Measured scan of single mutants.
Amino acid sequence: KKVTINGVEIKFNNPEEAVKFALELAKRLNLRIEFHGDQIKIE
Results as ranks from 00 to 15, higher is better:
1 K>M: 15
1 K>G: 13
1 K>P: 13
1 K>W: 15
1 K>A: 14
2 K>D: 04
2 K>E: 06
2 K>N: 11
2 K>G: 07
2 K>I: 15
3 V>Q: 01
3 V>Y: 04
4 T>V: 15
4 T>L: 14
4 T>C: 13
5 I>D: 00
5 I>N: 00
5 I>M: 05
5 I>G: 01
5 I>A: 02
5 I>Q: 02
6 N>H: 10
6 N>A: 08
6 N>G: 10
6 N>D: 08
7 G>S: 03
7 G>D: 04
7 G>P: 02
8 V>N: 05
8 V>A: 05
8 V>H: 10
8 V>G: 02
9 E>A: 07
9 E>Y: 06
10 I>E: 01
10 I>V: 07
10 I>M: 09
11 K>H: 15
11 K>W: 15
11 K>R: 12
11 K>D: 08
12 F>R: 02
12 F>N: 01
13 N>S: 13
13 N>D: 13
13 N>K: 11
13 N>C: 10
13 N>L: 12
13 N>Q: 12
13 N>Y: 07
14 N>P: 08
14 N>R: 10
14 N>S: 14
14 N>Y: 09
14 N>T: 15
14 N>M: 06
15 P>I: 12
15 P>G: 11
15 P>Q: 09
15 P>L: 12
15 P>C: 13
16 E>N: 09
16 E>T: 11
17 E>A: 12
17 E>W: 13
17 E>L: 08
18 A>V: 07
18 A>Y: 06
18 A>T: 04
19 V>S: 03
19 V>L: 14
19 V>G: 02
20 K>S: 08
20 K>Y: 09
20 K>P: 02
20 K>T: 07
21 F>W: 13
21 F>V: 03
21 F>T: 03
22 A>E: 00
22 A>Q: 00
22 A>W: 08
22 A>P: 00
22 A>L: 14
23 L>C: 09
23 L>N: 06
24 E>T: 06
24 E>S: 07
24 E>D: 10
24 E>H: 05
24 E>C: 12
25 L>M: 09
25 L>C: 08
25 L>Y: 13
26 A>I: 06
26 A>C: 10
26 A>G: 06
26 A>Q: 03
26 A>W: 03
27 K>A: 14
27 K>H: 14
27 K>R: 10
27 K>P: 02
28 R>A: 11
28 R>E: 11
29 L>T: 03
29 L>S: 03
29 L>W: 10
29 L>G: 05
29 L>I: 05
29 L>V: 04
29 L>F: 11
29 L>C: 14
30 N>M: 04
30 N>F: 04
30 N>C: 10
30 N>Q: 06
30 N>I: 04
30 N>S: 05
31 L>S: 05
31 L>K: 02
31 L>T: 05
31 L>P: 00
31 L>A: 14
32 R>W: 07
32 R>V: 12
33 I>K: 00
34 E>L: 05
34 E>Q: 07
34 E>G: 03
35 F>Y: 10
35 F>H: 04
35 F>M: 07
35 F>P: 00
35 F>G: 01
35 F>I: 12
36 H>S: 13
36 H>L: 14
37 G>C: 01
37 G>A: 09
37 G>V: 09
37 G>T: 09
37 G>F: 09
38 D>N: 10
38 D>L: 06
38 D>E: 08
38 D>Q: 05
38 D>W: 09
39 Q>Y: 15
39 Q>L: 15
39 Q>I: 15
40 I>V: 04
40 I>E: 01
41 K>D: 04
41 K>Q: 08
41 K>V: 15
41 K>A: 09
43 E>Y: 15
43 E>A: 11
43 E>W: 15
43 E>T: 15
43 E>K: 11
